[in-house]
Write a protein that binds this DNA or RNA. Sequence first.
DNA 1: GCCGTTTTCGGCCCGACTGTTTTCAGTCG
Length: 575
Amino acid sequence: MSVHNEEIAAAFDEMADLLAIQGGNPFRIRAYQQAAQVVRGLPHELSGMTGPDEYQELPGIGADLAGKIAELVRTGELRALAQLRRQVPAGLRELLALPGLGPVRVRALRSGLRIRNGADLKRALAAGRLARLRGFGPALEARLRVALAGAGERAAKRPLRTVAAQFAEPLRAYLKSVPGVSEVEIAGSYRRGRDTVGDLDVLVGARTAAATLKALRAYSDLRTLTAAGTTKATGVLRNGMQVDIRVVAPQSFGAALHYFTGSRDHNIHMRRRAQELGCKLSEYGLFRGGKRVAGASEVQLLEALGLRWIAPELREDRGEIEAAEAGALPELIERADLEGDLHVHTDASDGRDTLAAMVEAARQHGLRYVAITDHAQHLGIVHGLDAARLARQADAIDALNEQLDDIVVLKGAEVDILEDGRLALPDAVLARLDVAVIAIHGHFDKSEAEQTARVLRALERPYVSILAHPSGRLLGERAPCALDFERIIAAARARGCCLEVNGQPNRLDLDDLHVKAARDAGVLLSLASDSHSAEQFAYLDCAVLQARRGWARRQDVLNTRPLAELRTLLGAARR
DNA sequence: GCCGTTTTCGGCCCGACTGTTTTCAGTCG
């Protein structure tokens, strides 16, 4: 396997951009964009499928695109794209990313001023040449100057959802207190539970919009207001996040909430569905012949479209609409389903709090069991436990369990996968643990073949229960390791080993697509906080959200099981 | 370029806002 879905999706996105710059058929362009999204959302690699016939079964992939996928899988290249690249200067594509520049204006820049890239545009702006072009005025010029000046530092990271929450929740509370406001929801990717959130889509239910928009202007965390109309406004918060606020009347609130929750592809699919039913769907409601037939609530809206309730976490147009129609949506796991947490650190390794404090925190978070999984000693792991300290911790756990009657402490360790795939503790030591969690903590940049072989070798060891944060990614900091997840999942399945959904907000690893793939393959998931201090058990919520995005049900998760069943399952994994 | 219990041709999601216009195109979400 060489070509990944992401590369195929990127090729289609580039095709779409280049065709747009050339002034191609907008619907053809849209077809490429949609295909890119479909490919991105697949839970398995296209290169592992049999070929064009199977590709064509995917929505939005017809004979032509199936052929192009086949070409990419076979050769890693796409001739049609290479040809377009020869026709369109590479620098023009960057211009599309500038605010206010779409394909039409980029084309005008090219044909009218011979502009080929950002540097050309800068020069043209400096010389005041843009004014000659139709469609370019002083306001747009000013916007472009600002954007080009900040282009160097523009790589602003998408904030983690937990960071976005620190700004979203106070804003929600503030708007809720505005007179006349009946409802406030943070919609968009925030509501869908994505790991990172680009901007805040805030929906306000109120009979009139004026009071809300006035209140927004006065909000202390607002840095600037960049646009404001009669029903919506856009601003930038002090942390640099963009916030889009929209005010709708109560009878439209459900339709608007659905619309602003998205995703974009989910919305488009739903609007097509409405059309097929002879209706029109907008943020104001579902209309049949100009008459509103639904709109006040999402439930009512979905019902009118012949669909069961679709949880926001599923709205990515990855088959949830078809499943809702068939009544085949999964009943998603909830936080209350969790009985325990199988990945927790104490001050014995790199955690902040004592064993007793962590167990007490687990108890207060409603858990019935908790596995203490401090790092095993290994080069590069600070304060890791060796066999002797692990044995002493085991004694302390035994003593603690004597005193506790409503929670059970399990003995575990987080064992490093060494560079060659061996483990940092010998089998004899692992054999005495209740839970052995293994993970990669270094050598992240190996080739896919090497990295996969390394993890597969570790998974072959006996007494291994859970592969923790499998991809090793750190959001915004470190890309996921190159791993053949289909083989990892197959190995985990064959062996009865679980894959972790790590709830640390900057990990959320497995990601949603791999959760789905693991779940579909029948691999049990371990939803873990990976707590390094008492308050971090709250990160179980993040793990649950991520698991829900991957369609996980209660029965797909190891630590929803009562202790006795958990022990049986862990025992089975030791073979 | 895709797609079809309306269609194999003729459609393709919908609306707000801005800026550049002098009635609306382009961009954005």
